[in-house]
Write a protein that binds this DNA or RNA. Structure first.
Length: 624
RNA sequence: GGUCCAGUAGCUCAGUUGGAUAGAGCAACAGCCUUCUAAGCUGUAGGUCCUAGGUUCGAACCCUAGCUGGAUCACCA
């Protein structure tokens, strides 16, 4: 008994301080994890006292009680029958009695079959507010400058505009960076632009042949769209040539290699690598068009980068690494001069690193980029946000770096996300079955506008504010729609069904925020609380129970690289708050302590919604 | 063919380390605005958790086999 008391009420426990009411000096960032830990410790002591065995904390199966049951935390006692030599129900009963009597924050308990449901004192939840009422970023950690992480995302090709697949990539990358920052990481966001290669030459060649010197200005078209059109045009003409050759009796494979267009494109690539002035000038000119277009898309999407790498600048470094690896006998050369890495001892194949003609492949430049990035940042982690179609590529990248003797190879991590599918299947640029990023955002904007107008909201807004509101809502809907899905999973987008604004959506969450802000405006200044309520009603308690989970959700999201966890969290919070809002008076409450408490609670929820949404790259409106 | 990922309500998705009667949203149906913003709230209905075995007090979750879908195994990126 004394031991137990000592253990639970030793000074480092937050609960010991509850009694005295002077807990100001405490680090509160871990408060939510604390509660669970304290309960585990209490149970640990109880079992030791009752059954004479000390269990490791991870052997104590505790979880939050299901919503349909009475209680806050549930201990599953089936596993303890061996210790107690009693039926689960009796064991649960014994433990329950013991905990209620000896632990001051356990108010009560209930036993159902082998489940011990523990009811925590309301004070504990009230305390979450009490302790944090002045904190701006509840749950966020201070950034540690030495804990460096580089996040690469977006990584576009410069031969076509961005589409829905890129949107998922960009939103994931941006959100991941925000989540890691909130977990105390010193994050650098980088973009690797794939600005060289045969695909670029295809667009260039088509422009040369059929472009009539057209420019984005003369065409009144975004540069990336213009260049993308020529990429599609190339493909169309190329296919015609193949068809003609096949009609003349050639095998299809043969025709694909011999078609004059593809040979011209390859010739152009060779010239590019030889620094042919004319080709390089055209290349630069067209890429500039594309970048201007990308900038607009990025800006509309609300994503940005701290640094941009260009493949045309990093591939040579990769080449050097490969040549050096060959010299050191780590890599090997085939008769035709191509250079390879043997990964058969790792269970993989041989991997080509330099072509017979000495030109580099995708892997070559990624070796160079990784090396450069490591030298520049020396980060604990270098995370690549890239689709799961490239899983093999990143396995190989790490292994080749390992073989080349780079001890930092293990800092490379791949956030591998699933493809976005349309009802008719995968998106294909060349077949025109892509959902264009700019067009989708524009459509969302129009939907946001018409919906807002139909609802008759915001009629007194200034024009400027209206446009900002439509932007906020439409992007909120789009971003939330994408980010609420587990990144690893493939997801479905049906363009025929516009993205919803009701239910589990961005606007629903934004709306809840706006309603709270409305209340807060009417309430005036949120005052410091000097008196606190003794107890909570069910709705208040549910909101606080959810919000005290936030720090551990944030941590988990940072470990699993999953914005979806934040989305699910904030949706659940908002639902619980809306139930509270619907049923419990706030401004109309006549008891001043309760009224103030509810205003403060609302304010805290609003702040947490805003913070959570910012982790997803989503803004929240003050009114809507 | 080898490897990897996935399969949960009509649709889109949650489901933590194996725990209670598997959850949300949309769509459908029935209610709630003279009230702090109805982009909200309440209720009804909706399930062979792909299939078959196995592990155990207990499996959507772990193991084995199979079925279905996707990705990948390029001198493409």
């Amino acid at each position: 008994m004394t031991f137990l008391t000592k253990r639970i009420f030793q000074p480092r426990s937050i609960f010991s301080l509850l009694k005295n009411g002077n807990c100001l000096s405490l680090q509160l960032k871990k408060i939510s994890m604390k509660l669970e830990n304290e309960i585990v410790l209490a149970i640990q002591e109880a079992i030791e006292k009752l059954y004479g065995t000390k269990l490791e904390p991870n052997k104590i199966p505790i979880q939050q009680t299901r919503k349909d049951q009475n209680g806050d935390y549930t201990l599953v006692v089936f596993g303890f029958s061996g210790l107690s030599k009693k039926k689960p129900e009796e064991t649960a009963q014994e433990l329950g009695v013991f905990l209620k009597e000896n632990v001051d924050f356990i108010a009560d308990f209930e036993v159902i079959k082998g489940f011990l449901n523990l009811i925590v004192e309301d004070k504990i939840y009230i305390n979450v507010l009490k302790e944090n009422q002045n904190r701006k970023n509840f749950g966020f950690l201070e950034v540690n400058p030495h804990d460096k992480v580089v996040v690469e995302y977006s990584s576009p090709n410069t031969n076509k505009p961005l589409h829905l697949g890129h949107i998922r990539n960009n939103l994931l990358g941006f959100s991941l960076a925000e989540i890691l920052k909130a977990n105390g990481k010193n994050v650098t966001k980088v973009n690797l632009v794939n600005d060289r290669g045969i695909h670029i030459c295809k667009s260039m060649l088509a422009w040369q042949k059929w472009g009539n010197q057209i420019t984005p200005e003369s065409a009144q078209l975004k540069g990336d769209k213009l260049v993308g059109d020529f990429y599609v045009l190339f493909d169309k003409k190329y296919k015609e040539q193949i068809a003609a050759l096949v009609a003349d009796g050639l095998e299809k494979e043969q025709a694909e290699k011999e078609a004059p267009l593809i040979q011209e494109a390859q010739e152009m690539l060779r010239k590019w690598e030889e620094n042919d002035v004319e080709i390089k000038t055209l290349w630069q000119r067209m890429n500039t068009w594309v970048y201007k277009g990308f900038d607009i898309t990025y800006q509309n999407m609300g994503v940005d980068f701290d640094k941009i790498y260009y493949e045309s600048e990093t591939y040579l470094l990769g080449k050097e690494l490969v040549v050096e690896g060959l010299k050191n006998g780590i890599l090997f050369q085939k008769e035709n001069g191509s250079i390879w890495c043997d990964l058969t001892d790792e269970g993989l194949d041989e991997k080509l690193l330099l072509r017979a003609d000495g030109t580099s492949v995708y892997m070559t430049q990624d070796l160079g980029t990784a090396q450069l990035r490591h030298e520049e940042f020396d980060a604990q982690k270098m995370i690549y946000v890239v689709g799961n179609e490239q899983n093999y590529h990143f396995d190989v990248l790490k292994l080749v770096l390992k073989k080349l003797g780079k001890p930092w190879f293990n800092s490379i991590e791949h956030l591998s996300y699933g493809m976005v599918e349309l009802p008719q299947g995968k998106m294909k640029s060349r077949e025109g079955t892509v959902v264009d990023a700019d067009e989708l955002m524009e459509e969302m904007y129009i939907t946001a506008k018409t919906t807002t107008q139909e609802l008759g909201k915001a009629e007194d807004f200034a024009q400027e504010d209206l446009e900002k509101l439509y932007q906020t809502i439409s992007l909120g809907a789009l971003k939330y729609f994408i980010l609420k899905v587990d990144p690893k999973k493939q997801m479905m987008f049906n363009p025929a069904e516009s993205i919803d604004f009701n239910g589990n959506t961005g606007p629903f969450i934004q709306y809840t925020y706006a309603r709270i802000k409305s209340i807060l405006r009417k309430a005036g200044e949120v005052e410091q609380m000097n008196f606190w309520p003794e107890s909570l009603n069910e709705k208040e308690k549910n909101v606080l129970k959810q919000i005290q989970n936030f720090p551990s959700i944030l941590k988990q999201a940072g470990e699993l690289y999953s914005p979806a966890l934040i989305s699910n969290y904030v949706f659940e919070l908002v639902k619980l708050y809306n139930k509270f809002y619907q049923e419990i008076p706030i401004l109309k409450e006549t008891d001043q302590v309760k009224r103030q408490f509810r205003i403060l609670l609302s304010s805290f929820v609003a702040e947490n919604i805003k913070n959570s949404m910012s982790l997803l790259g989503i803004h929240v409106p003050e009114r809507m």
